[in-house]
Design a protein around this nucleic acid. Structure first.
Lengths: 193, 193
DNA sequence: AACGTAGCGGAGGGGTGCCTCCGTTTGCAA
DNA sequence: TTGCAAACGGAGGCACCCCTCCGCTACGTT
């Protein structure tokens, strides 16, 4: 699969010299934090600062903002998409809902990722492809089982869910309630459910 | 009602000298554009530039960013909340849906307003109060008519809808489809609707 | 027509961010 | 241990933004 190769490539860019690798990892950790707090437009100098690294080092490892951004999320996206497989033995609808809850857990706190998932951005398309490849079969299975409305695309679902997550909720209980309402809308139009 | 007074106050700040009023109005028009394009953090200098006005003029009329922001949306919020009254003769559910569509039309293109509606910010609370005062009765009426699920608060609905609108949709058709899914979730849990 | 003042606008100081360049440091292979 | 290529880091140039201040303009009044 082409998209996985691309994600692998990104991962392989990790440098080999010990000090370099240390800095690389510190940068990614810092970037994860800062992107999470400030969104995709966060200050790169702040990231270097927080990683305890010169700004030059940041730019050597990640010449473009997007390079850093990708490196941060590749791992998480992989984990998320991999986690779709161990839901196979649940009923179709429950599997979809369970996966979407994971999706929310991964994506919900990371405004930056959610933004990029919707605007399509170069190589980031790979991440989207990966996520969609994982989630779409779950939706289709639910639709075939008659548990989800047939006229919704997986893209609709992603937008529905990640839109809701876009703003932080003061109370997680409300977040779950709103998510539940949205998911109810995904059920088949009428009678049986 | 206290909130309306406060909105009135904002409106009354409009200056009286002809040139001043011209600039004031140009600033609001420019701000509406720029806030719409760039969100609430837009550059004030860009706004002044686009209004064809010196930056000093902007600051004299609107000493704080929020002042400008408020002035921009007061009018729109008023219109939106006023428009709830002429839906009284529709069936409860249809009235709610119709108003939410107006809500989307007003708010959907204005990321900045949606942001502020959720984060609560000083005087902006008035706008929210006003909007909620308009929309909440519509929801309650729908709930009493058994057309909307009783466990959803109006705040839930606002978050549901404005979250979905947070990212632009390339195709408006998809936006409507996703909105429809979400609104379906608002229907009462089971059988009759 | 003349005048007082409300209003104008933009220069400028301070801050922050982006990105490049290059003298210095350091890991590691020989 | 030595040597050198790889890696470091931060100074500095440029751009943009925020906000203040003050000499100039022109509106509306008398």
């Amino acid at each position: 699969m082409a998209s996985a190769d691309q994600l692998g490539e990104v991962f392989a860019r990790r440098p080999k010299r010990a000090d370099a690798r240390r800095n690389y990892d510190a940068l990614i950790a810092a970037a994860r934090e800062v992107f999470g707090e400030c969104g995709a437009g966060a200050s790169l100098e702040e990231i270097a600062r927080r990683a305890g690294v010169g700004i030059g080092t940041l730019y050597r490892n990640f010449p473009k903002r997007r390079d850093l951004f990708e490196a941060v999320y590749v791992e998480e996206v992989r984990a998320l998409s991999a986690s779709a497989t161990d839901l196979a033995d649940l009923p179709a609808w429950d599997a979809l809902v369970a996966w979407l809850h994971r999706f929310v857990a991964y994506v919900g706190t990371k405004r930056a990722l959610a933004e990029e998932l919707v605007h399509d951005s170069e190589v980031f398309r790979s991440c989207r492809t990966e996520i969609y490849a994982a989630g779409e079969p779950l939706l289709r299975r639910a639709q075939e089982a008659g548990a989800a409305r047939p006229d919704a695309s997986f893209d609709d679902v992603v937008r529905l869910v990640s839109g809701i997550m876009a703003y932080q909720f003061p109370e997680p209980a409300q977040r779950d309630r709103v998510l539940a309402i949205a998911l109810d809308g995904l059920r088949p139009p009428a009678t049986d459910r």
